[in-house]
C-alpha cells in the first residue's frame, strides 16, 4: 500500500460501538445511524437525555437499552431543561460527563423550543442534537415546523400540502450567541463526527441540526438513507455549515448546480408538486444559499 493510499484509507470514524445492534428502528432510519455516529464521536463519558421522539422507541423498551451509556427518557418539551439539571447535578457532585440532549424536530422546533431557547440563553454546558426527519414521524408523519414547504404529511394532505417554509432553527440558535452551532447530515458521517469531536472540547451550549433520513415519512426507498441527505446538500436544500463564536463557515459548496427537483423527485412526499411549485422551492433555496454565502463573507457576526 502506497503512502498516499494509506492516507486515503485513514478511518476518521472511531471503531468503538456504543449502540447495540437489533434496535427497532425502521429500515433505512437516519436517526438510528445518527446516534451511532454521535456516540462514536463523543465516547463513553456521555449521558443521554431523550425526550419523546422516535428514539424513545429505538432506545428499547424496559428492561432493555440500546445504548451502553446512561439514558434519561423525559417528556416531550423538556430535553434542554432536564439536560441542564443533569449537568448541574453532576457539577455540584464534582462528577463529569458530556451531557447530550437528543431530540427530534418536533421536540426541538416546536414543543421544546422554549426550554431549548432558555438553556441556550443561559449557555448551559450541554450538547443538543436535533435529528431532523422533518415531521412527527413517531406519531405517524404529522407536519412540524421543520416540515419543508410543499411536503405531504398526514396533516398536510396532498390537496393542501405544507404552505409555510421550514423554520430556520440554525439562525434561531445562532441568535442566542452560543459558542457553536452546526448543521450535519447522516450522509456525511466524517463531517458529523469531526464536528461533534470539536464540539466536545467547547464549553457552553452546542447545537447540532442533523438532517436524518426517514424513508417511512419521506416515502423514499430505504436504501437511499445516505444518498438523500447528500443530495440535499448538493442541491443546497440543506447546507452544511458551522457557526463558531459568530463566524460562519460553509463546509461544502457544491460545484455543480444540481436542481432541487433531483432531490424532490425521489421522495413520495413531494410527488404531487407541479413544475411551478418546484420552481418556487428552487427560488427559495437559491435565495437562502446566497444569503448564507454573504454571511460567511462578513466574518465574525457576534
Amino acid at each position: 500500500m502506497s503512502k498516499s493510499e494509506k492516507k486515503m484509507m485513514r478511518a476518521t470514524i472511531p471503531e468503538e460501538e456504543y449502540m447495540f445492534p437489533g434496535t427497532v428502528d425502521c429500515q433505512g432510519c437516519g436517526a438510528a445511524y445518527a446516534m451511532r455516529l454521535a456516540l462514536k464521536a463523543l465516547g463513553p463519558q456521555t449521558m443521554v437525555v431523550i425526550p419523546a421522539c422516535c428514539w424513545s422507541i429505538i432506545a428499547g423498551p424496559f428492561p432493555t437499552s440500546a445504548l451502553k451509556m446512561p439514558i434519561y427518557h423525559t417528556a416531550f418539551e423538556t430535553a434542554a431543561a432536564v439536560a441542564s439539571g443533569l449537568k448541574a447535578g453532576l457539577n455540584i457532585r464534582e462528577r463529569d460527563a458530556t451531557v447530550l440532549a437528543w431530540a427530534g424536530d418536533g421536540g426541538t422546533f416546536d414543543i421544546g423550543v422554549q426550554a431549548l431557547s432558555a438553556a441556550a440563553e443561559r449557555d448551559e454546558d450541554i450538547i443538543y442534537v436535533c435529528y431532523d426527519n422533518e415531521a412527527y414521524m413517531n406519531t405517524g408523519i404529522q407536519r412540524s415546523s421543520a416540515t419543508p414547504w410543499g411536503a405531504w404529511t398526514t396533516t398536510t394532505p396532498r390537496k393542501h400540502p405544507k404552505d409555510r417554509p421550514k423554520k430556520n432553527m440554525m439562525e434561531i440558535m445562532a441568535a442566542h450567541k452560543i459558542p457553536y452551532v452546526a448543521s450535519a447530515t447522516v450522509g456525511h458521517p466524517e463531517d458529523f463526527v469531526r464536528k461533534l469531536k470539536k464540539a466536545k472540547e467547547i464549553r457552553g451550549t452546542r447545537f447540532f441540526h442533523v438532517l436524518a433520513t426517514c424513508p417511512t415519512g419521506w416515502r423514499s426507498p430505504p436504501e437511499l438513507m445516505l444518498e438523500l441527505p447528500r443530495l440535499a446538500v448538493e442541491t443546497r436544500v440543506f447546507p452544511l455549515y458551522e457557526i463558531e463564536n459568530g463566524v460562519y463557515s460553509i463546509n461544502r459548496k457544491p460545484k455543480q448546480n444540481i436542481p432541487v427537483a433531483e432531490y424532490l423527485k425521489v421522495q413520495g412526499r413531494f410527488r404531487h408538486l407541479t413544475d411551478q411549485q418546484i420552481q418556487y422551492i428552487q427560488d427559495h433555496v437559491d435565495e437562502t444559499w446566497e444569503l448564507l454565502l454573504k454571511k460567511e463573507k462578513l466574518g465574525r457576526l457576534f
Binding site: T78, V82, S84, A88, G89
Partner: peptide, 15 residues
C-alpha cells in the same frame, strides 16, 4: 415546567 424538568435532571444525577 422547566423548573421541575431541571430538578428532575439534577435528581437523576443524584443531587
Amino acid at each position: 415546567h422547566s423548573a421541575m424538568a431541571a430538578c428532575i435532571g439534577a435528581s437523576a444525577a443524584g443531587a
